[in-house]
Design a protein around this nucleic acid. Structure first.
Length: 909
RNA sequence: GCCUUGGUGGUGAAAUGGUAGACACGAGGGACUUAAAAUCCCUUGGACAGAAAUGUCCGUGCGGGUUCGAUUCCCGCCCGAGGCACCA
């Protein structure tokens, strides 16, 4: 009986589905383990071989953990709201729900063919009202909470109201509150709510007709669609993510994520410790204190001017009547630029003098105030003190506008560039003179605080997330407007279902504004919808308790599953989803809805699988194609050819002729009787004919081969091109594995005792597999498997004692063939319920081993010693050779270095 | 510019201070077969010497350093990938 993967895989996939083999229960007798994949967006193109890379790795780990006695939660779902479905709806008029449902069905079919151990009873879809009910619920919780900086956590907004009524809060006094109208009260609270509405400069994308979050914009273009993005002041719903900046930064330390990813988040959060300090300014005889932020107060004696951001309200306030026209013209100029232009022009220095002067609070110097776009309104206070001698941006500005440059560090040369380094001795700096820069940085901060001129301040670059989108295919906001006041739709009324609309075409207004009766109790409902990251921010919690109608997750389910132990997905979510999820989770943690303050303990980023395109070379002006090796002799054009008609870079000529009508009469110039195609690594895409569908691999080789091959390709974290060159190797391995059990129709397995050598092979493998899986080095595990199977084949091993554990060991990697052989070994239950075999070192230990002996690193001869010999014993033996051995005897031994079981080196004079 | 990564045969890669290239692909040779497929065996980093067994030298992007010994650790450069980019 040959290894017939087709029938085997079909049989076991049906068995797993029918028996709910991988259904997870809350079982407190076992330790839990939660393995999660980043759920896919179900696009129309279907799954390609890149998607399953991470899914296979997580599935292997899940199955391994089950064998190790853990109760494993391994769910899957779909991130189903979002722009592509809506764009498609605009083009075709089809309801996004219809295309989404179709795409989901296709994804499911493709996923099932690969044999994943998902508990499909826990599937979630973000566009399902029963799911987005909880997205809306979380939003309402954020709406009715504020961030208490003293307790450093979110609290119900009622507590803030109580506090204002009693003692006042910040600049709101109890009297003000008492006399405030409903509308004014609403406006005051909006300044504190975690989910709030506020005017801000937003990324407006005309092409998509919506605003976008910072992580949805790259190089001034929208990530989806690549349309230009401009800055616009608009009133939008926002999430106060910035309040959590410090906590998001600090708890990174305890996460088991890669350093590069943590670093990306640290940069994105962008903490900087500095000082806020007040400069008095005067303008047309009026004075006004202006607070600036700096990380280098120590350079305050080198300040020669100040700069205000053009978007800042201060810009016009500090403009003198004589400079009014110039400043207004400059601000208009700046506003006109798109984000992309501003990025492109970062090297050009622009600015205008405001007409105002500031007073240096330490020196009393009178310095000019300028306005320039290199200062950002959204960071710090939107105003800076400029120290051209020690800041490269200030330096460029001072050079351009001929402002003085005063160095304050001894011996530095600022004739061609600024001296930014934090080293040297201070000079020209009053009481700081003679101090080391590092010392001066602290001394200056202390001084400013003591004199009451300013205070230490930590700033973050992380901005609040803009949460509304003027689109259709997203979660509606459970907010209605009563006399212009935003009011929450009561929780009991959730989900607030997405209404039907006649047409998806953008008309400049939000699509929901066209929906009939989009009202609550006669009041108009919010017409924006939530962004893509809303639904993906807490989905991992929903998997714990997916059918609960009363809560996002019950206290019991949450207390048992806690958080995700292993999360696998791409790095592209580093500054989006992975920040928002952490924020969302911390918020729910603050209110006591979840018991862990971080959602994902360990995170692995799988690399991208790129496409490997093939080319044929058409001789210009003919229908003749020349093989790649000979193309230099002709003038040719390169044409992408469908990789499905190329094998190992050799073109299937007949298939090529049949591929396109225009190639039916094609002629070929061959090398060695074959047509060799050129190749290149490119993004996997339809237009380059390099997309590999996993179904095709499953058809030709089987799912087990696909799984093994994707893992054998190299380390999971690494990006690499898809290349089926080596796939025959793992396929051969599976056939060999099968032949350990079957010689044609003869079942070979016996109950004989295993030999010492066979046991050694097995136990070496057990140890290696355990170590490698824990370290996520699946490619080396598979290598170890190949070695073991080759050894056992050579030994003609056929004992149950060896083969039974071997099947268990293979099952995480190639579950179908393992199930089949497991049942043929006479087991009634799935191999998933077996236990991982125990490693016993006694089988592996060798009696003797050979030490290569080298002198000063050069190998001379070898000695045989028992493996159990200690380094001291080996050394004593070698020194004993001094009398008899011609090498050792002729030299003076200085030192003998022994590494157990490996190598011995003798240092001689 | 800054941060994070990575650079090893024809190819994917292994080895994280101790015999570099495990394992696999591809290639070449052989066995079985009428033939093909499948399967199995041998060779396969480079150079040199030898009839052969075998031996010697070189070799992990480049240049230094630490060490008895470096792909691995340190310093400086070159190249590729990813991220951030007027954040004061």
């Amino acid at each position: 009986m040959e290894y017939d993967f087709r029938s085997i895989e079909k049989k076991w996939q049906e068995y797993w589905a029918a028996n709910r083999t991988f259904k997870a229960f809350e079982d407190s007798s076992k330790p839990k383990y939660y393995v999660l994949d980043m759920f896919p967006y179900p696009s129309g193109a279907g799954l390609h071989v890149g998607h399953p890379l991470g899914y296979i790795a997580s599935d292997i780990f899940s199955r391994y953990k089950r064998l190790k006695g853990f109760n494993v939660l391994h769910p899957m779902g779909y991130d189903a709201f979002g722009l592509p479905a809506e764009q498609y709806a605009i083009q075709t008029g089809q309801h996004p729900e219809k295309t989404t449902t179709e795409n989901v069905a296709r994804y499911r079919q493709q996923l099932d063919r690969i044999g994943f151990s998902y508990d499909w009873d826990r599937e979630v879809r973000t566009c399902d009202p029963e799911f987005y009910k909880w997205t809306q619920w979380a939003f309402l919780k954020m709406f009715s909470s504020w961030y208490d900086p003293e307790q450093e956590k979110a609290r119900p907004i009622e507590e803030l109201v109580a506090r204002i009524e009693k003692t006042g809060y910040e600049d709101v006094t109890p009297e003000m509150w008492k006399s405030a109208s409903e509308k004014e009260k609403s406006e005051i609270l909006m300044r504190y709510r975690i989910a709030y509405q506020g005017e801000t400069s937003v990324n407006w994308c005309e092409g998509l007709g919506t605003v976008l979050a910072n992580d949805e914009v790259k190089d001034g273009l929208s990530v989806r669609g690549g349309f230009p993005v401009e800055q616009k002041k608009m009133t939008q719903w926002q999430l106060r993510v910035s309040a959590y900046a410090g906590r998001l930064l600090n708890s990174l330390d305890k996460l088991d994520w890669t350093d590069s990813l943590k670093e990306m988040q640290r940069n994105w959060i962008g903490k900087s410790d500095g000082t806020e300090i007040v400069f008095n300014t005067e303008c047309d005889g009026r004075t006004k204190p202006v607070t600036i932020f700096t990380t280098r107060v120590d350079t305050i004696f080198g300040v020669t001017f100040m700069v205000i951001a053009p978007e800042s309200d201060l810009a016009l306030e500090l403009t003198s009547s004589s400079q009014k026209d110039a400043v207004e013209a400059y601000i208009r100029e700046v506003k006109k630029k798109t984000e992309r232009e501003r990025i492109a022009e970062t090297k050009t220095v622009t600015g205008v003098f405001s007409g105002a002067y500031g007073i240096n609070p330490l020196t009393g110097d009178r310095i000019p105030v300028w306005i320039s776009e290199y200062v950002l309104a959204g960071y710090g206070t939107g105003a800076i003190m400029a120290v051209p001698a020690h800041d490269s941006r200030d330096y460029a500005f001072a050079r351009k506008f001929n402002l003085p440059i005063v160095p304050i560090i001894e011996g530095c040369d600022v004739s061609t560039q600024s001296f930014d380094a934090k080293e040297g001795k201070m000079c020209n700096s009053g009481f700081l003179n003679g101090m080391d820069v590092k010392e001066a940085m602290e001394a200056a901060k202390d001084y400013v605080e003591e004199k009451g001129l300013g205070r230490r301040k930590t700033n973050y670059r992380l901005r609040d997330a803009i949460f509304s989108r003027q689109r259709y295919w997203g979660e509606p906001f459970p907010i209605y407007y009563k006399d212009g006041i935003a009011c929450p739709v009561p929780e009991e009324e959730l989900p607030l279902r997405l209404p039907e609309i006649d047409s998806y075409k953008p008309t400049g207004e939000a699509p929901l504004a066209r929906a009939k009766d989009w009202t609550y109790k006669g009041y108009p409902l919010e017409t924006s919808t939530m962004p893509g990251f809303a639904g993906s921010s807490a989905y991992y919690l929903r998997y714990m308790d997916p059918h609960n109608g009363e809560a996002l997750v019950s206290g019991e389910a949450d207390a048992y599953w806690r958080n995700v132990d292993l999360y696998i997905g791409g790095t592209e979510h580093a500054t989006g989803h992975l920040i928002y999820s952490r924020f969302w989770n911390k918020f729910l943690f603050d209110l006591g809805y979840v018991c862990e303050d971080e959602p994902f303990r360990k995170l692995i980023n799988q690399g991208m699988i790129q496409g490997r395109s093939n080319f044929v070379y058409r001789v210009v002006g003919t229908n003749t194609f020349v093989s790649a090796g000979l193309r230099k002799q002709y003038e040719t054009t390169e044409i992408h050819v469908d990789i499905n008609i190329v094998h190992n870079d050799r073109l299937d000529l007949e298939a090529f002729k049949a591929w396109r009508p225009e190639f039916a009469e094609a002629e070929f110039i061959l090398e060695n009787g074959e047509y060799v195609c050129g190749w290149a690594v490119e993004k996997m895409s339809k237009s380059m004919y390099n997309v590999v569908n996993p179904d095709v691999v499953c058809d030709t080789y089987g799912a087990d081969t696909l799984r093994l091959y994707e893992m054998f390709l190299g380390p999971i974290e690494q990006s690499k091109p898809w290349d089926t060159k080596g796939i025959d190797g793992v396929n051969r391995f599976l056939k060999k594995f099968w032949r350990l059990f079957y010689d044609r129709d003869r079942f070979l397995v016996t109950d004989e005792k295993a030999s010492a050598e066979e046991l050694k092979s097995l136990h070496k493998l057990i140890r290696k597999e355990q170590e490698d899986i824990e370290a996520f080095s699946f490619n080396t595990t598979i290598s170890a498997f190949m070695i073991a199977v080759n050894e056992l084949t050579a030994l003609k091993c056929c004992t149950r004692e060896i083969l039974e554990p071997l099947v268990i060991l293979l099952s995480p990697f190639a579950p179908h063939i393992s199930e089949e052989l497991w049942s043929r070994l006479g087991h009634q239950e799935s191999v998933a319920f077996a236990s991982f075999p125990e490693f016993e070192s006694s089988y592996v230990a060798e009696d003797n081993c050979t030490y290569p002996v080298s002198f000063n690193g050069r190998t001379r001869f070898s000695i045989d010693m028992p493996k159990s010999a200690t380094p001291a014993e080996v050394e004593a033996y070698v020194r004993g050779l001094e009398q008899t051995d011609r090498y050792v005897g002729s030299q003076t031994i200085v030192k003998v270095i022994v590494v157990p079981g490996r190598i011995i080196n003798i240092v001689v004079k």
